[in-house]
Design a protein around this nucleic acid. Sequence first.
DNA 1: GACCTTCTCACCTACGTGTTAAGC
DNA 2: TCGCTTAACACGTAGGTGAGAAGG
Lengths: 183, 183
Amino acid sequence: MWHAFAAIGTEMIITKAGRRLFPTIDIHTSGLDPNGFYSIKVDIAAADDNRYKYVSTTGWVAASNGNRVNHIADQVVFGECEHPNSPNSGKFWMSCETISFKKLKLSNSKEHYKKSDCIVLNSMRRYQPRIVISKWDRDHTAPVDTKIIIFPETRFYAVTCYQNGQITNLKIRYNPFAKAFRD
Amino acid sequence: MWHAFAAIGTEMIITKAGRRLFPTIDIHTSGLDPNGFYSIKVDIAAADDNRYKYVSTTGWVAASNGNRVNHIADQVVFGECEHPNSPNSGKFWMSCETISFKKLKLSNSKEHYKKSDCIVLNSMRRYQPRIVISKWDRDHTAPVDTKIIIFPETRFYAVTCYQNGQITNLKIRYNPFAKAFRD
DNA sequence: GACCTTCTCACCTACGTGTTAAGC
DNA sequence: TCGCTTAACACGTAGGTGAGAAGG
């Protein structure tokens, strides 16, 4: 699903009150220590420091002279959404068929920052979601090991209104809440 | 609200898939150690070991020769529902205006036991919800102090269908989801 | 004008109610 | 028959969609 959007240039709506991602970020884990304790969260990093604009003839183009970012793991992070079942045992996480972050929302209003599960972004910029899995020590007082996993196909442009009509069509086609707009 | 129901004899519907309590159990805390760590949950104990039946002329009567229970705190407990925000600091809990257990559901099917927030009970018996507040040690590995608080007005009969029409009327009057049945 | 943002709206999904009739 | 349980139903609440018009 993510690949179908990525091939066109994924866009995500951001609103004051917060808008869910579609598609949602769903993962599955393996190779964890069954008896270890882990928290799992998603955060969102800048994909680069460009501003973008959408030109109907050519698509997305960088509008300012931003620098290319080579190490997204070191980039500015704009907030995070811890999975509701965190923290939990490796055994639990691996028994989950899918670990879904469907409650994660994107906003453009700093006043809504305090809402949990809501990450504040800037419009017309590009972002990269990241999966952050932290293992905690026996006393659960500090993380002892943290892994960051990136799926490049989840990169997206934050917008207040869809720019590319093909993206709109895919959203309407696959998002159950947009069924009203299907032909 | 609870008192209005208790005066008549509170009943709670139980179904296979699980039914919410109405009224819900909402509490407020004070006197906790602001820097201490606490988990807060609700569990449900047998109020006694009677079976009951409802007679339209006289109301609820014990149908078997069960024993009166004097110490509900020692009774059989039928499951528990940990508050979603557990565990958390005393400071956090005391800052909450209301701590609500609205997601707690009651079921009569053991197959649904594994659902979190769902407690399995037997129909035509009487139950007593209990608030359980546990303080954890500095390493969060074991509870060091547990307090059990009981509000007698939350005692209820578990039923698969309302027995007392006055209870039905109160539910319809005050539960927003039953608005369709108001005159 | 061009571009981006905000708001309201109709139309969905998802699910919490008691009712009613059927089942056991 | 009687008492209790179950399932389908209409009708609410609650909230997630893009469209379209208005605002800046």
